[in-house]
């Protein structure tokens, strides 16, 4: 629901890291528990990614499934819906081990800074 404001945060961080070089792709890792709709994020990026550094850049989203680990029997269960229970023993003493990721992993940039992105001397 707040994908647009997430894209604005991503744009600020990516622009800072790019150092004036043109960005071709931005790789994100987003967990299934983070209430983000990937299609919406991609759409919002098309609105947010303006200017010489970000224009034309694409988002690559690694969508990480939610998984829990049982503290009693050690079983690792992938969740298809959000119920905090172990698929092995049915117990509820579980720890969420994946699905909460919300990372900018890396960006691909052109090796030379964009001429148009360099402020005039």
């Amino acid at each position: 629901m707040h994908e647009l404001s997430l894209c604005e945060s991503i744009a600020r961080a990516v622009t800072r890291e790019a150092g004036g070089r043109r960005v071709s792709s931005v790789r994100l890792r987003i967990g299934a528990l983070r209430q983000v709709v990937p299609d919406t994020l991609v759409y919002c990026w098309s609105i947010t990614s303006r200017g010489p550094v970000l224009d034309g850049s694409v988002l690559e989203i690694d969508y990480v499934p939610a998984a829990v680990e049982c503290r009693d029997c050690g079983t690792l269960s992938e969740l298809s819906r959000f119920t905090l229970s172990c698929s092995g023993c049915g117990g509820t003493a579980v720890t969420v081990v994946s699905g909460e990721e919300m990372l900018i992993v890396s960006i691909d940039v052109a090796e030379a800074p964009e001429a148009s992105a360099i402020p005039p001397a």
Binding site: S9, A13, E17, L103, I104, S106, I107, D108
Partner: peptide, 19 residues
């Protein structure tokens, strides 16, 4: 593909880190 070379920059920063 690219006419010029490109580089990958690792960031590994939480999108919420600003907040």
């Amino acid at each position: 593909g690219y006419a010029t070379g490109r580089a990958r920059i690792e960031i590994l920063e939480d999108i919420f880190s600003e907040n």
